[in-house]
Amino acid sequence: MASAKPRVKVPKTAAKDEVITIKTLISHKMESGQRKDKEGNIIPQKIINKFSAEFNGTPVFEVDLEPAISANPYFEFSMKVPESGKITFTWVDDDGSTYTEEKSIEVTG
């Protein structure tokens, strides 16, 4: 079920050492493992359990997720931009699959 679709919002340019805000969202049910189906069987847990953001390979921000995070996990966080480069976003699913997204940012002035 590779239906998870990441969406990321990053400014295209920034001044050197500017602190930018990054918004990320991924479509995912975040099945909590608490719900029951019509027959009363517990629906097994299936969530995104890890999210990370790296800038040119250096970790910036990371989250360990629990089932208490809402469906379509949304994160807003900050990053200080030292130079032009690439930001890589990774989401890890309980079933082992990973979803990635990449954004470039350019330092002007």
């Binding site: 602190v19 930018i20 909590s32 800038f55 250096t58 970790p59 910036v60 921000f61 990371e62 989250v63 360990d64 997720l65 629990e66 089932p67 208490a68 995070i69 809402s70 996990p73 949304y74 994160f75 807003e76 966080f77 900050s78 990053m79 200080k80 030292p82």
Partner: peptide, 21 residues
């Protein structure tokens, strides 16, 4: 447990938002 945010000096400011149940 809800979530654990891990910051780094690259974060600039220690702020984060999400949505929870």
């Amino acid at each position: 447990g809800v979530a654990t945010f891990k910051f780094s000096p690259m974060s600039g400011v220690a702020e984060a938002s999400t949505r929870m149940r």
